[in-house]
């Protein structure tokens, strides 16, 4: 009985994770500029991948494998914002800001980003 509930819950997590991954991919194609795309990839992408890993943890019925999946999930949540931040920082210094459609850009008005890499 408990195993059946775990399997159904794992299925729901798996489908949710796949759905968020799909939404992240659609967002990366549909959104208008690099930073808004980054929102889609870093949030929806991390949640999508993370939910699939949690589904693996729930469906494997093995403590060692489940722990590994959960550690993978934590690892994913730790690394995704770091890579998104690095990429945002690198792109801000290289791309032409005229093509970015922003209401306010205080990074530019306050003398631009610091030049040290």
């Amino acid at each position: 009985m408990i195993a059946a509930i775990a399997i159904y819950a794992g299925c729901i997590l798996l489908l949710l994770g796949a759905l968020f991954s799909l939404i992240a991919a659609i967002g990366v194609v549909r959104l208008p500029d690099l930073y808004t795309r980054m929102h889609a990839a870093s949030k929806a992408g991390a949640v999508g991948g993370g939910l699939v890993l949690l589904a693996v943890a729930l469906l494997c019925f093995d403590v060692g494998v489940g722990l590994r999946a959960i550690i993978g999930f934590v690892f994913l949540l730790l690394t995704t914002p770091v890579s998104a931040h690095l990429l945002a920082r690198a792109s801000y210094r290289t791309t032409d800001q005229l093509q970015m459609k922003m209401v306010v850009d205080e990074l530019k008005t306050k003398g631009g980003p610091n030049s040290a890499a």
Binding site: S21, L34, R37, A41, G48, V52
Partner: peptide
């Protein structure tokens, strides 16, 4: 821009990770 491509590649590896994880569940090979 190159940044867009790198972002999409990053997302692609995360999705591929989910894909492989799903295969792990489907085949039962952990």
């Amino acid at each position: 821009t190159l940044g867009d491509r790198v972002l999409a590649l990053d997302l692609m590896t995360v999705i591929a990770m989910g894909f492989v994880g799903t295969i792990a569940i489907r085949t039962g090979l952990m």
